[in-house]
């Protein structure tokens, strides 16, 4: 997998580059933008809208509820304390503890799920330029050695991930993309060494 990153001084030139890359035959899924602020989806690139991490939130919520119930009711059941005429398990407090732990797990699950889905933390060094933090925009094109198409999301339309430049070799694709980006006004190209 080779990633090529072009650094653009402004939004317009970056948009131009994306447009040309797409026109050249690179698939939308191969192109992504690196920005220090968030742009509306589709302003530069389109990305698959579905994400799965919220299922993890739900799962954690349920696990948390189970844990909370076990904590409040389970321990009371296993280690009973005689409390006069009151029931061994206190119903209402069990509800409260169950709720709080469910929420705790859900919150933690959300963060964990988010990072998992983002693929962060990234252990591999990937092309990046600090100028992005200063408002420059990076357009990155991912090219797979051997020229096969990038892996698409399940929801992608048939053929959407297979660009016209697919017939070219990886190296050729890379130089083509760099050329397009330079033309569009890239300040510089940060390329990743082929792994």
């Amino acid at each position: 997998m080779i990633e090529t990153l072009g650094i653009f001084p402004d939004f317009e030139s970056a948009g131009r580059a994306v447009e040309r890359l797409v026109r050249e035959g690179f698939a939308e899924a191969q192109i992504t933008s690196l920005t220090s602020v968030s742009y509306p989806d589709g302003a530069l690139v389109k990305t698959g809208r579905r994400s799965w991490f919220r299922w993890l939130t739900l799962g954690c919520f349920i696990a948390g509820a189970a844990a909370g119930f076990a904590l409040a009711a389970g321990t009371a059941w296993l280690y009973p304390v005689q409390t006069g005429e009151k029931p061994i398990i206190a119903y209402y407090p069990t509800g409260i503890v169950t709720y709080e732990l469910a929420m705790l797990f859900a919150l933690a699950g959300t963060i964990v799920g988010m990072f998992l889905e983002m693929g962060l933390p990234a252990w591999r060094k990937r092309p990046y330029d600090p100028a992005i933090a200063e408002g420059c925009i990076g357009i990155s094109v991912t090219i797979h050695p051997g020229g096969e198409a990038v892996v698409c999301g399940r929801e992608a339309e048939t053929g959407a991930c297979v660009g016209g430049v697919v017939s070219l070799s990886a190296g050729e694709q890379k130089s083509r993309a760099e050329e397009i980006m330079r033309e569009a006004g890239a300040l510089r190209i940060v390329a990743e060494e082929p792994s």
Binding site: V81, Q82, T83, G84, E85, K86, A90
Partner: peptide
Amino acid sequence: CRDAPCEPVCPVYASYHNPDG
């Protein structure tokens, strides 16, 4: 008290009710 207000608020069961009341 049979329904002692002190008992349920104790977080560590220091205040508890025994079967003899």
